[in-house]
């Protein structure tokens, strides 16, 4: 791996870790504080706070994507497609179960994204190995 690619890989890992840490902190703070906030603008700001680190994580990924080689890009794309299919199936399954009253998970929109990211990571590791 060239020095440029090594640096990009290291930077991507650090940026993703920082983004996820901020995301978790933002979610925790937002859920803790939101009950005491009545101002509508503050509530909107609180609810949108976790989105900022998510956007940063996506930006970090696409920056890294630009220095990936063709095989790494293919693995990332294949894993993303499979993860999307699995996540949609999971959402539909839970939706049906919820409609019939057998099972319920609130806030579907909150778990879908993180679930898909976890599935994407697992598939990517399965196809390409931990080092791609």
């Amino acid at each position: 791996m060239s020095e440029k690619r090594k640096t990009a890989c290291r930077r991507y890992r650090i940026e993703t870790f920082v983004a996820m840490a901020i995301y978790l902190a933002a979610v925790f703070i937002a859920t803790q504080v939101s009950g005491n906030v009545t101002d509508q603008t503050a509530l909107i700001a609180l609810s949108l706070a976790p989105i900022v680190p998510m956007i940063y994580a996506v930006y970090a990924f696409f920056k890294y994507y630009r220095v990936m080689d063709e095989r790494e890009r293919r693995i990332a794309s294949d894993a993303a497609a499979l993860a999307l299919v699995i996540s949609v199936l999971a959402a539909i399954t839970i939706g049906f179960m919820q409609s019939l009253g057998g099972f319920a998970i609130d806030d579907v929109m909150n778990w879908f994204g993180p679930f898909m990211i976890v599935v994407w990571s697992l598939i990517r590791i399965r196809i390409g190995g931990p080092d791609w």
Binding site: M1, R5, D69, E70, R71, E72, G129, D131
Partner: peptide, 17 residues
């Protein structure tokens, strides 16, 4: 494998694959 990866500007894993 690393030498070849460097010359091709791909990862070592890609050369292995």
């Amino acid at each position: 494998q690393s030498d070849l990866a460097e010359r091709l500007d791909v990862s070592r894993q890609t050369v292995i694959s």
